[in-house]
Nucleic acid binder design. Structure first.
Lengths: 341, 341
DNA sequence: TTGTATGCGTTATCAT
DNA sequence: ATGATAACGCATACAA
């Protein structure tokens, strides 16, 4: 009992640079130099140091290092939601760049309704990350702008005035999607809308304008980012008196909800109903789903965002390069077909 | 130009406790006490301190705090994959418990092939988290056990000998699934297997034993956790000479891959092919998918894991309570039907 | 209640 | 190349 407790305490006692230095018979400074891989140690002592560190099981304390160092080497990343694989794509892109640049990543997760945005950003602030990459922020422009005054921020998938943003042209994408449905002969085309908060009005705008431009009446059904909620809302829409023959959803998650609703109601897609999503997420690409959607290339958005954040860290405050707009691409798959009128 | 640069530098200069103390006319210690919410400050000075902090825009430096403090208040979490929403469920469960206990969470992400496991765990070690909750670890038992000697670990969704584990009985779940198919009259039942690494043999075992117990021959197709890879492997299986009439996949992601393959090959589910998944992930629950699966209740697994990790932090090293096994439940939906022989 | 002083494990500057 | 030593921003034991 006494023995085992002793062993346990022994094993869990963290080894510090001091310990390594003592064991190797050198100063702490040399251990630090050796572990950072900078010049200033002879090959011989370096080996000696690594040997000691290895034997003692030393792991550098990143907390202490970042306190002592002025280096700007950690990116704070905020993902809106773990159930939308668009954010997985974006994260992969960020990680690719961060790894290549040797930067650390601190990851936090928000929520689809945005209620966690403030907390999560504050956590990043308290963790003293050097820059923040926020994907799918839901909070108002004002709050985001205020936050960006405290720390360099790159907003991904949403344009925020005055904040470096890497996004896809939502008006253009929504226009493509809507036009596609119109060209297929659809007239009653509904838009299953996301919460109409700051920064997410583009898709609705593109839809509205394209509908009006074609002499059609926009039919907007407010909904959410959550698939099950979208399914409920879509069901109500599809059961209504003059149900639409096509639904354009604000994102793939919601579009899948529309497919769920159609399935539940026995409505055949695309024969009786055409559905278009947005994001070209992994789920939309699945053969069994084959959702017609708008590709925004999440992976590339992530890469660009990280690269921009890195440039910001280097002190490149060139305002002209602060935003990246990408043109989305319509991906026609199996959920849209000509309307048989 | 000069002015703007000045402003910028000014705005980004981080405010410390020292600054707040000076502004409020008190000592650093009092500021610390006030911000930690412990007793030792008069209401009056506390207000004065908060006022100063507010005006200066002070945010506590968690890095410095955790260096100075001996408090055990941060959980390191590792999720295997961001594209499998089982891990989103588990994470939610962990977050619920962590929030309730006022603990911080440091999140890291691995990869389905396990190639990132070591790096990710090392990152957690270097970040000096006080305990690690690892979900869906892929590395060998030995490595996991070695790691657990350095820091308290709770393994979620995988049993690791000698390591606190919160998991679901995979043998039992696989037995239910296989028996379900047998009872539906299927005889040629294939198992689309996960990589047969340490800790993930239970589902295969349950399948094998149940098949043999019924006098049937196991048909195992090795595959991966990734949906698209599973789809490819399943397609090969379904195209073979005496293709199975039912496929039991090691998890929902893979099962969706099977559905993808069936769809691509024009095979009707469940009329011509029955499919069973595992996990009861959100995707499997979608009406349009309605996958028959085995529920392991990821959310609850996450809660239990966090709660166990918390107990470990409190020094409760009671070996008897170190593992939690839960009994899974078969959820019969629309992808399984009687085999018409 | 309030202030002083020391230490946490590093980095980095300055000697030697 | 190597070694003291002063920060880094905070927590905390202790004194006042």
């Amino acid at each position: 009992m006494l023995l085992s407790r002793h062993l346990r305490e022994d094993a869990l006692k963290t080894v510090t640079m001091e310990d390594v230095a003592r064991d190797a018979g050198v100063s702490r400074a040399l251990v630090s130099i050796a572990f950072r891989g900078v010049s200033g140690v002879s090959a011989a002592t370096r080996e000696k140091i690594f040997a000691s560190a290895d034997r003692l099981g030393y792991r550098p304390n990143r907390i202490a290092a970042s306190l002592a160092s002025k280096a700007q080497d950690t990116l704070g990343v905020m993902l809106q939601d773990l159930r939308n694989d668009l954010f997985a794509d974006i994260f992969d892109g960020i990680r690719d760049e961060a790894d290549a640049a040797g930067k650390h990543v601190v990851l936090t997760v928000g929520s689809v309704d945005g209620t966690r945005d403030e907390d999560v950003l504050d956590t990043l602030l308290q963790s003293r990350v050097d820059t923040v990459i926020a994907t799918g922020l839901v909070l108002p422009d004002n709050d985001a702008t205020t936050f960006a005054e405290r720390i360099p921020v790159v907003s991904v998938a949403r344009k925020i005035p005055g904040v470096a943003s890497v996004y896809s042209d939502n008006v253009a994408g929504a226009t493509m999607a809507t036009r596609h449905l119109i060209e297929l002969g659809h007239r009653r085309i509904a838009f299953l809308a996301n919460p109409q908060t700051d920064g997410y009005l583009g898709r609705r705008l593109g839809y509205d304008d394209t509908m009006r431009g074609a002499g059609l009446t926009p039919l907007v059904m407010p909904s959410s980012y959550a698939r099950d909620v979208a399914a409920r809302d879509a069901a109500a829409l599809l059961r209504s008196a003059d149900a639409p023959t096509a639904v354009f959803a604000h994102n793939d998650q919601a579009a899948l909800g529309v497919l769920d609703a159609a399935f539940s109601l026995g409505i055949s897609v695309p024969r009786e109903l055409s559905v278009v999503g947005y994001d070209n997420s992994a789920m939309s690409r699945a053969p069994g789903t084959a959702l017609t959607t708008v590709d925004i290339d999440g992976h590339e958005l992530g890469r660009r965002a990280a690269s921009l954040a890195l440039r910001q860290l280097e002190g490149d405050v060139n305002a002209s390069g602060r935003s990246v707009v990408r043109i989305p691409e319509l991906i026609v798959r199996e959920t849209t077909a000509a309307h048989a009128s």
